[in-house]
């Protein structure tokens, strides 16, 4: 952005189209969408679109789409979804590429991530105070037993 207080109308229009493309990704990430479709959604040529999207969000549309899919995968894995199903549910068509991208993004494989999240949930369910700093727990009149 250069100067919002003097933003010409055509620049605002461009911003709105870029935002529209980003929201298109947010809504349709689970479908087999590709860059051409996303660019079409914003009425841009592909290369112009990539440049403007990166200016606005600091990453390419492809990178952003991958990030949205992986974030959703994390949520589904944490909820106990089967890994192969999660892979396809968030829009990946290959479990190999999903696992490799997930590992790069989260620093661990989907199965390790899921095991950790499920274990964390069990622990919090058994003793919710483990999730809460003692200072806050005490304001609720509760004593955090994991703090000596």
């Amino acid at each position: 952005m250069t100067a919002p207080e003097m933003e010409p109308h055509h620049k605002l229009y461009l911003y709105r189209r870029i935002v529209q493309a980003k929201l298109f990704i947010d809504r349709h990430f689970a479908e087999p969408i590709d860059l051409n479709q996303i660019a079409d959604e914003a009425y841009f040529s592909k290369f112009h679109f990539i440049r403007l999207f990166k200016q606005a969000y600091g990453k390419t549309p492809h990178h952003y789409l991958t990030q949205v899919r992986l974030n959703q995968a994390k949520r589904l894995l944490a909820a106990g979804g089967a890994i192969a199903q999660v892979c396809f549910d968030v829009g990946f068509d290959s479990s190999t590429s999903f696992t490799a991208l997930f590992k790069k993004h989260a620093g661990m494989t989907p199965s390790v991530y899921q095991a950790k999240e499920l274990q964390r949930k069990v622990l919090f369910k058994q003793n919710p105070l483990q999730a809460i700093p003692n200072c806050f727990a005490e304001t609720y009149g509760l004593k955090n037993s994991n703090i000596q």
Partner: peptide, 29 residues
């Protein structure tokens, strides 16, 4: 955020209420 104008447009579109629109400040926008 990386780009205030894009984020402003998106959040406004989602119904977030702004008490001040983007303005230029000495540290950015």
């Amino acid at each position: 955020c990386h780009d205030l104008m894009a984020t402003y447009e998106e959040l406004k579109g989602k119904g977030v209420i702004f008490k001040k629109p983007p303005t230029k400040e000495f540290y950015g926008f």
